[in-house]
């Protein structure tokens, strides 16, 4: 009887740990670098998101950005994949490529304004083979965070207001 009670307790603990193990929920809040320019008041944008990525997986996030605002997008992920994640920003309606971090030294953050309010598609890719650098990496999946911040554009800049 004691044996079965112990087995039950172990099963419950294991189940609880497992349910926590697969959650990437707040990854972007914990690991993406916040904008901290002097005088800049970046605010957390609710369109930020984290997710579990496999190598070669492409995920797209469609968000809305308003004219008259500055935005800062940063990507972060678990260390082994850190310098390998790439992202592109497209106009959702025209599919025009607006930014590709692979042409900007794989920068992990991008600050921008837009002349018009628009829907953007942010495409995040973890390339296959990204874990080759670490022979001891036991998984090909990792949490990836996409942090979006915003602030009202300085009136001296491009703001329409």
């Amino acid at each position: 009887m004691k044996y079965f009670i112990t087995l039950f307790i172990v099963a419950v603990i294991s189940s609880s740990l497992f349910s926590q193990a697969g959650v990437c929920g707040n990854f972007h809040k914990k690991y993406c670098v916040l904008g901290n320019d002097k005088g800049a008041k970046w605010q957390y944008n609710a369109q930020s998101k984290s997710g579990l990525f496999n190598q070669g997986m492409v995920s797209k996030l469609r968000c809305v950005i308003y004219k008259g605002m500055d935005y800062r997008i940063s990507v972060c992920c678990e260390t082994v994949l850190g310098d390998k994640v790439s992202y592109k920003i497209f106009d959702s309606r025209t599919n025009e490529l607006l930014f590709d971090n692979s042409t900007s030294e794989d920068t992990q953050s991008f600050e921008f304004q837009s002349v018009s309010t628009r829907q953007l598609i942010i495409e995040v890719v973890v390339p296959q083979g990204a874990t080759e650098k670490d022979k001891h990496k036991a998984t090909d999946a990792a949490c990836v965070g996409l942090l979006i911040e915003h602030k009202i554009t300085d009136k001296q800049g491009f703001s329409a207001y």
Binding site: G51, M57, V64, G129, K135, H136, A138
Partner: peptide
């Protein structure tokens, strides 16, 4: 793989997971 010290195999083509689009709201 850890025991044998092999790197992650990439020669065999992997099937990319289905792309997913998330729709976000401010």
């Amino acid at each position: 793989e850890i025991e044998t010290g092999d790197s992650v195999k990439t020669e065999e083509p992997k099937v990319n997971p289905v792309s997913e689009t998330f729709f976000q709201v401010p």
